[in-house]
Amino acid sequence: MSRNPARNRVTRAHRSLGPSWFDRLSDLTHPSWARTLVARRVAAAGLACLAVALGLRGDPDSAHSPVVVAVRDLQPGRILVDTDLEVRQLEVRSLPDGAVTALSDVSGRTLASPARAGETLTDVRVLGPRLAATAAGIEDARIVPVRLADPAVAELLREGDRVDVLTVDSDTPAHSGRPQNATVLASDAVVVLVTPSGNGRDQRDRVVMLALPATEATTVAAASLTNAITVTFQ
């Protein structure tokens, strides 16, 4: 270390007026305390701006969507009206597949299964193409309503049951003493709805909704106009 203060001052002045490459490199690798403080402040300001930007953007996983929910407990077989439903904003990541987003998509439709108050409705909770396809397991499916020859059988049926649909030859009277020939109209039909009893309704008026491939659904619907229909459980 030089013991001549005057010479040191001259050397520092010379470096400030005409710094060499070595001097510049030395300044970069050994920044002054003031320069380090400024750099830290700039970095802190940048991080603060980034945090604000992320806060304004929001978490993409918490995006919301309008969905239709039941406002009260609803029974299957009910024809939905607007007062049964309301639209709420719920997190997208919490919604089930097929969640209904507009009242017009379900208002006036028949509810196929019970719904609790606050429950999100989906496209398979009401009678329609999506329910038929999902229940039957094929895209080309239909829902056909039938009244059973023995209304008591309807009491035993539950949504999701698989049954075979049968009829008998209408040319053979039931009390003729001759055996009636049974014809299987459809196999592996899926029960999607049994209209509820009660409220003074005649048991003979109860309707069973079956999901079937389109061709078999047509056959069953035509036969039900003239022949007695029954089902056998699988």
Rank of each mutant, 00 (worst) to 15 (best):
M1S: 13
M1P: 13
S2D: 14
P5A: 05
P5N: 03
A6D: 12
T11F: 10
R12F: 10
R15E: 12
L17Q: 06
L17W: 00
F22P: 03
F22D: 07
R24P: 03
S26Y: 05
P31A: 06
S32C: 01
W33E: 09
A34K: 08
T36M: 03
R41G: 14
A44S: 06
A45L: 09
G46E: 07
L47H: 00
A48G: 13
C49R: 02
C49D: 01
L54P: 10
G55E: 07
L56M: 14
G58E: 08
G58F: 02
P60F: 06
P60T: 10
A63M: 00
V67Q: 02
V71E: 14
R72D: 11
L74C: 08
Q75T: 15
R78E: 13
I79G: 03
V81D: 14
V81K: 12
L85A: 03
E86N: 09
E86V: 07
E86Q: 15
V87I: 15
E91K: 10
S94D: 11
V106N: 03
G108P: 10
T110F: 09
L111Y: 08
L111E: 08
A112R: 06
A115W: 01
A115I: 11
R116Y: 12
R116A: 15
G118S: 06
T120R: 10
V124F: 02
G128K: 07
A132K: 00
A133N: 09
A141G: 00
R142M: 12
I143G: 02
V144Q: 04
V144N: 07
V144D: 03
V146P: 03
L148I: 07
A152I: 14
V153L: 15
E155I: 09
G160Q: 12
D161C: 09
D161V: 12
R162A: 14
D171V: 00
T172Q: 13
P173C: 09
A174V: 15
S176N: 10
P179S: 05
P179G: 08
P179N: 10
Q180T: 12
N181C: 01
N181S: 00
L185D: 00
S187N: 09
A189N: 10
V190N: 06
V190H: 04
T195V: 07
P196F: 00
G198Y: 02
N199E: 13
G200A: 04
G200Y: 12
D202F: 07
D202V: 05
R206F: 02
V207H: 08
M209C: 05
M209E: 05
A211I: 02
P213D: 14
T215R: 11
T215Q: 10
E216R: 05
T219E: 09
T219L: 14
A222D: 15
A223H: 01
L225A: 14
N227G: 08
N227L: 02
A228M: 04
A228H: 04
I229L: 05
F233R: 15
